[in-house]
């Protein structure tokens, strides 16, 4: 058998194998894509508006956005002062309180209410720091939602939101 013949044969086998492999990979695309959020789920995750007027000072309300609990806290003067009096450098996840609220809206703290440890929902106005306490594994957050003690590695995250007016925010 000439070498040209065997080269041609090898080429045929390699080409067939390659095309078949491409086809096999293409079949995986819909099988994987179908597990991603579907169109109705994405549409249901659209931005929501929250009216702030009914929230009394010192009150924390819980709303849902994309299936996640969002805490909207109307902080008292005392809570704001507590959050600002701490030395930021000493915190496990250093961040100033000013960076966690919108400018001029110091009393409104908006957080994703999911413990950064393993996803439980912390309870408001509990714990040693007057902020949030996670009952699952004892993580404690302060009045700015920053982690102070316990196994959680990071501060409570902030959702994307904006003030539509003085008394209304749009989350998402």
């Amino acid at each position: 058998m000439s070498s040209a013949h065997s080269t041609r044969r090898d080429f045929l086998y390699i080409a067939t194998g390659t095309v078949a492999a491409v086809g096999g990979a293409a079949v995986l695309v819909p099988l994987i894509a179908q597990m991603n959020p579907d169109a109705s789920t994405i549409a249901a995750g659209a931005a929501i508006e929250v009216d702030l007027t009914p929230i009394a000072e010192g009150q924390v309300i819980k709303v849902f956005w994309r299936g996640k609990p969002i805490f909207v806290s109307h902080r008292t003067k005392k809570e704001i002062d507590e959050a600002r009096s701490v030395n930021v450098a000493t915190l496990p996840d250093p961040q100033s309180d000013q960076a966690r609220v919108k400018p001029g809206k110091d009393q409104w703290l908006v957080l994703i209410g999911i413990c950064t440890h393993l996803g439980c929902i912390p309870i408001a106005h509990q714990g040693d720091y007057d902020g949030f306490f996670c009952p699952c594994h004892g993580s404690q957050y302060d009045t700015s939602g920053r982690i102070r003690r316990g196994p959680a590695p990071a501060n409570l995250p902030l959702p994307p939101y904006d003030f539509v007016s003085d008394s209304k925010i749009k989350i998402g």
Partner: peptide
Amino acid sequence: FFLLVLSGLLYFTKKK
């Protein structure tokens, strides 16, 4: 189109 190409290749592979 893909299946046409693949079946053609497989036909000649089989023949070989």
